[in-house]
Amino acid sequence: MLPLFLLNLADDRLILGHRLSEWCGHGPILEEDIALANIALDLIGQANLLLELAGAVEGRGRSADALAYFREAVEFRNALIMELPRGDFAFTVARQFLVAVHGMLHLEKLQSSTHADLAGIAAKALKETRYHARHSADWMLKLGDGTPESHRRVQEAVDELWRYTGELFEMDDAERALVAEGIATDREALREPWRAEVSRVLQAATLQVPDDGFMQRGGREGRHTEHLGHLLAEMQIVARSYPGAEW
């Protein structure tokens, strides 16, 4: 149960970090290019720590690299929102914002996990995630309260992404058992604080908070969009072409 939960946390960060790294060299301005690459690096670093821990807890001798590069799409447990194509800059900013606010609230709870290593990794990741949340909130304001074009694009991004946010608060029975042990935390309880914090920023940015409607799901069980396979093909090709290579 614990390895799968750790894979949840790790895969969310690995897949989003990889998506974000696609901006490297393509950012709208130099500072933003650097910022997105830095955030990608933080996320992939967090994923690395969590994958190492997942491998150790699992006890089958799988390293972080083995878990990142030699699992198939159906074995990835990330939420679908992480794997969606990067879209335009507004889409990237809106996704970062919705995910970072969730991550911040989740990690605040996980830093008191009864699992000491998980608690430590969460406390570290929380500090980084606060920077990510502030950075994306700044852009939500600039785009939302910017020009009619930037406002339209970021509102469309929020509307499009909203249906992928429900999955962030889902738990299966295995995770509920970990909540009972004090290792995981109740994701359901994060929903209202998340909505409140997201709404404050959206309103400040003159953006509409979408209504909850149909929510996409399935990533946690390995049912992914077509986009994940393409992402993995690129992410895994070097490790799979030269297995065991070190550099």
Partner: peptide
């Protein structure tokens, strides 16, 4: 010292 809480609304920060 390192801040504990963070304000997300830029104009209130």
């Amino acid at each position: 010292s390192a801040a504990v809480a963070t304000e997300l609304v830029p104009l209130l920060r």
